[in-house]
């Protein structure tokens, strides 16, 4: 029996060693990725230095054109949106970024299902953060979502779970270039079949998502947050963002709501489906947004030139 147990232990020792080695290789490969989502994630977490960052879900990645924002406001901009993700991933990413520098403005595109309400299993929002689990503060995000995650994260290989093929392909043959600063416009016209309004029958607030938003705001020493609800083809029930309105009111944060803007609602020219603008709609929306943002950005530039004044204005917002 002892001999057999020793053999079983030896088997697991081999797996542990392989796990460590594979983890190291993928960690190195992640840093070397030349394009695609791997390089984009690495850039967002470790290399951004832009004045303005856009956060959010697929609606952020497809709706905000950083080139228009940069040209119009005279500040550099990068789009950090991520398909199918919300407050949990964005808090983690902001936490990583704020360890390096504080962007001047964060434009946060809100999608209630990903940022405020209960929905899918929250563990799915941790995927892009797994490679950075060892960085300060990130383990807490995992613990909030599921205390058991810390055991899974003991495996170095698991940190690259489901992404290893992507990492390899992004190293060998990167698919996308990042000339648009993280923005990924969708070309095409409205597909009427894809207009399926998400009916949330009994919306329930997700305390974890809301606490991530609050923490992000609390940690933003020198960053000004602007929450934005970009347009929906079918508009949006205003009650879904009521908690966000309260939060913004309490913290003195600007909330720009385009969800029921008549210019966009039921306007087939600007959409690809019920929730995503096409490239034309995205450029138009970004221009509209910029008009509203000029005031904020003027204050930011002024604050940057007068640090003392900035301190006063932030303490007032308290």
């Amino acid at each position: 029996m002892k001999r057999h147990l020793f053999k079983i232990a030896a088997f697991f020792l081999i797996v542990v060693l392989l796990d460590l080695a594979t983890g190291m290789v993928f960690s190195r490969l992640t840093g070397c990725a030349r394009g695609g989502d791997t390089a984009r994630n690495e850039y967002i977490c470790n290399k951004t230095s832009e004045d303005i960052l856009v956060f959010g879900s697929s609606r952020a990645i497809h709706h905000y054109n950083p080139l228009i924002i940069a040209d119009s406001l005279g500040l550099t901009c990068y789009n950090c949106g991520q398909d199918g993700n919300g407050a949990i991933l964005n808090y983690g990413r902001y936490h990583l970024i704020s360890q390096r520098y504080h962007p001047k403005v964060v434009i946060y595109d809100v999608m209630p299902l990903y940022d405020l309400l209960t929905g899918e299993d929250n563990r799915k929002f941790l995927g892009w953060l797994r490679p950075y689990y060892d960085r300060p503060g990130i383990d807490s995000v995992f613990a909030w979502v599921d205390p058991m995650e810390k055991y899974k994260m003991m495996s170095r290989m698991y940190r690259y779970n489901s992404r290893f093929l992507q990492i390899l392909s992004d190293c060998v043959r990167p698919a996308q270039e990042d000339a648009l600063k993280g923005f990924q416009p969708i070309e095409g016209t409205l597909d009427t079949l894809k207009i399926n309004p998400e009916v949330i029958e009994s919306p329930q607030l997700d305390s974890l998502k809301i606490s991530c938003l609050k923490r992000m705001i609390d940690e933003a020493d020198a960053t000004r947050f602007v929450f934005v609800v970009s347009p929906y083809w079918y508009g949006m029930d205003d009650r879904l963002i009521a908690p966000l309105r309260d939060l913004c009111r309490q913290r003195g944060i600007l909330l720009l709501d385009f969800s029921n803007d008549p210019k966009y609602v039921h306007n087939d020219d600007y959409f690809i489906d019920g929730v995503h603008l096409n490239a034309r709609g995205a450029d138009e929306f970004t221009r509209d947004l910029v008009k509203r943002l000029r005031q904020v950005c003027a204050e930011v530039v002024q604050d940057a030139m007068s640090p003392r004044l900035a301190a006063i204005s932030f303490s007032k917002r308290g």
């Binding site: 797996v15 392989l18 796990d19 594979t22 299993d121 563990r123 799915k124 899974k152 495996s155 290989m157 698991y158 690259y160 779970n161 489901s162 290893f164």
Partner: peptide, 12 residues
């Protein structure tokens, strides 16, 4: 097999 479980498995 174990490596594939760790790398390709869906654990959520």
């Amino acid at each position: 097999t174990l490596v594939l479980i760790l790398l390709c498995g869906v654990f959520s």
